[in-house]
């Protein structure tokens, strides 16, 4: 058993960590122009390619998760970049599908 240091209000406590605490997900700010898979699923149909210009509200893709088709709309206008997924790809939760620049 190896003690770690936990700082609470400026005091450093010697203590053991739980697995849950050690493995906790570090928070990172999410960019509004990143389209992510909010649940694991499959890219069913892609309406856009890298370089395409889209308007806010355009249909970007159909994403199938939990046997339901989700229509993913563009949250803002811009150019499609960073799109690597192909139709039929299964993506894990949190994966970035594309970015609107």
């Amino acid at each position: 058993m190896e003690y770690k240091i936990l700082n609470i209000d400026g005091t450093e406590y010697k203590t053991l960590f739980t697995k849950k605490f050690t493995n906790r997900k570090r928070w990172t700010p999410s960019a509004a122009n990143e389209i992510k898979a909010t649940i694991p699923g499959t890219v069913l149909k892609l309406n856009v390619r890298n370089g395409d210009k889209v308007k806010e509200g355009d249909v970007l893709l159909l994403f199938e998760a939990m046997k339901m088709q989700n229509i993913i709309l563009a949250p803002c206008a811009g150019e499609i970049t960073n799109l690597e997924a192909k139709e039929g790809d299964a993506l894990p939760k949190g994966a970035v599908i594309l970015t609107i620049k």
């Binding site: 936990l6 609470i8 203590t15 053991l16 960590f17 739980t18 605490f21």
Partner: peptide, 8 residues
């Protein structure tokens, strides 16, 4: 339990 996570 001060032994784990300082008992928080």
């Amino acid at each position: 339990q001060p032994l784990v996570l300082a008992g928080v």
